[in-house]
Design a protein around this nucleic acid. Structure first.
Length: 427
RNA sequence: GCGGGCUUAGCUCAGUUGGUUAGAGCGCCGGGUUGUGGUUCCGGAGGUCGUGGGUUCGAUCCCCAUAGUUCGCCCCA
């Protein structure tokens, strides 16, 4: 029985070409969020299981976490999301943090689920959260930042759409307008969450089953596209005005691809107010990419004074799909600048030249396979390394090295310092 | 957790209505060129046909199970 070379189901190996893409995406994301004053944190990949039981639908705890008993009999889970962890961290230092606290992280997260396009068992997720701001300037900043992340990665505003809704508004509608009890409104929320996946007539049928004789009101309400189309008894509430303000502010900031979407729910139960979601508008990948919202209740679960919180998370798998379907990934070269090839010189001489180049800030890999020159060149081209240097008898005599630029095909005889400068200039 | 498709060389795939030594293209390695690639020519390595069991004189092919992968459902940071 031979060992399998496959990575674990739903998880990925990152060979250098994949790692380069990940490093590229993460460094762009870091730059973008740091521009807004967010600071990076991290935490253990394992947490006590109860951290996740306390919140968010039970499903994620019972069926989607990797959980086990450690050697000391403690029930633990591999983190399926970062929000409980960051809430825990903020609660622990509630008194000493400087507010507003702007925190971000790019953790890897694990969920036990059936892998499919855009959803794997292990993924990395940018988490951006702001603590201590109880008005919509927090949401405004987060949505502005979310938009800027994608712009900084080369996308244009027509490639995505931002949809905004509010849990408070939904609750108001459910209770005051449709006058549904908790159970029915919960079912209705779950149904609306699936609306886009259902054929329209099937949706209407299920809607009728759920709300009964309130069908007509519910149906017409779910078809509105603007805040001012809300029924009169709802339109004057704070939640509705907040959404309107938020969208207006965003438009004044030049973010025009933002819309009100009364059907936007988002899965987690811990959202308390504004929620938003970013959609890929490309027909080939028309799906929700990421989202977030306000969740004011989580920090308070740790027995301290509640802290107003809003945040969002963005997964690396969906982000990469987005960048690929929209052709936004640049050609990424390896970090190695030069391959230095020994073609009949002396080992220590080649090593010495490599050492001097490295002192000059150049990344050098040696090829001492002793292969023919064309093979060495092919292998350099295959790796995407731009420069190659041959050291043979001629170079030893002339005290110069011949530097070949594989992009232009030009070879030059240079001193080591000249070669190093040439490479740094073109980096 | 449920249902469908797929699994043959490193990659993309052909193929055998069940018959002895399983193929192509690309890639890889070597050579034609005693020091210069992304051409060309020649040669070579590489497969227990996903795994386990069953039917059969005989299975890569048929049947069952199982794993992986993929699409959908459930669910959803």
């Amino acid at each position: 029985m031979s060992l399998s070379t496959q990575p674990y189901k739903g998880a990925r190996d990152f060979y250098p070409e994949d790692m380069r893409i990940q490093k590229y995406m993460f460094s762009k994301l870091r730059n973008s969020v740091e521009k807004y004053g967010y600071q990076e944190y991290n935490a253990p990949i394992i947490e006590p299981l109860e951290l996740y039981s306390a919140k968010s639908g039970q499903e994620i705890v019972n069926e989607q976490t990797y959980q086990f008993e450690d050697r000391g009999g403690r029930l633990v889970a591999i983190r399926p999301e970062m929000t409980p962890t960051v809430s825990r961290m903020v609660a622990a230092k509630r008194q000493e943090l400087a507010y507003p606290a702007r925190l971000y992280s790019i953790p890897n997260l694990w969920r036990y689920e059936r892998p499919q396009r855009g959803r794997l068992r292990e993924h990395w997720q940018l988490n951006v959260d702001i603590f201590g701001v109880d008005n919509i300037s927090a949401e405004l900043e987060l949505i502005q930042l979310a938009s800027e992340l994608l712009i900084d990665l080369g996308s244009t505003s027509d490639m995505f759409e931002i949809r905004v809704n509010s849990r408070k508004l939904i609750n108001k509608i459910m209770m005051s307008y449709l006058k549904l009890d908790d159970r029915v409104s919960h079912d209705l929320i779950k149904l609306i969450d699936r609306k886009n996946k259902l054929p329209i007539d099937k949706f209407k049928k299920e809607l009728k089953d759920v709300v009964g004789k309130k069908f007509k009101d519910a149906d017409s309400l779910l078809n509105i596209n603007f805040i001012n189309e809300l029924p009169e008894s709802v339109i004057d509430c704070i939640a509705a005005r907040q959404i309107e303000d938020l969208i207006n502010y965003l438009k004044k900031l030049g973010i025009n691809n933002v819309v009100f979407d009364i059907n936007l729910m988002r899965g987690f139960d811990y959202y308390t107010d504004i929620v938003f979601e970013v959609f890929d508008t490309n027909p080939k990948n028309n799906r929700s990419m990421f989202g977030g919202g306000r969740y004011d209740g989580l920090v308070g679960l740790f027995g301290v004074e509640p802290v107003a919180t809003a945040g969002f998370g963005m997964g690396d798998v969906t982000l990469r799909n987005f960048l690929e379907t929209n052709n936004l990934l640049p050609k990424l070269n390896p970090e190695t600048d030069i391959i230095i090839a020994d073609i009949g010189s002396e080992v220590l001489k080649v090593n010495e030249i490599a050492f001097k180049l490295r002192l000059n800030g150049v990344n050098v890999a040696s090829d001492f396979t002793g292969r023919k020159i064309d093979k060495i060149i092919r292998s350099a081209v295959k790796q995407g390394v731009r420069y190659i240097v041959f050291i043979g008898q001629e170079e030893l005599h002339s005290k110069k090295i011949s530097l070949k630029d594989l992009e232009t095909g030009i070879s030059e005889q240079l001193t080591i310092d000249q070669a190093a400068n040439r490479i740094k200039d073109r980096k």
